[in-house]
């Protein structure tokens, strides 16, 4: 991502704007009255502040870091693997 300084600047602003959106969404949690998906008591965690945000962030992060990257070591082959 080092095409040009101008572009880098644009990317930086874009990311900042996006992070701002994320934070404001998180803050909405304080205002909105939550209806739980589960019948009461089954999964109280669901009602905690920022549960969806954290889950949404952690799961793909974990997916990549502890899932796909090790998996890749295991199963990646050259493109001609089956042709040989």
């Amino acid at each position: 991502m080092n095409d040009s300084p101008k572009k880098n600047e644009a990317v930086r602003r874009l990311v900042l704007g996006f992070v701002a959106c994320c934070v404001s969404l998180l803050l909405l949690d304080l205002i909105v009255h939550r209806h739980l998906s589960f019948a009461e008591g089954l999964l109280p965690v669901e009602g905690w502040f920022g549960f969806y945000a954290v889950y949404g962030f952690v799961s793909p992060y974990a997916l990549i870091v502890i899932g796909s990257i090790p998996l890749r070591k295991l199963i990646m082959r050259s493109e001609e693997y089956y042709d040989g």
Partner: peptide
Amino acid sequence: THVVLQLQLVFFAVLA
């Protein structure tokens, strides 16, 4: 609720 929570999920996944 549903819209906000779904948006949170989506945005934070993108953030990841």
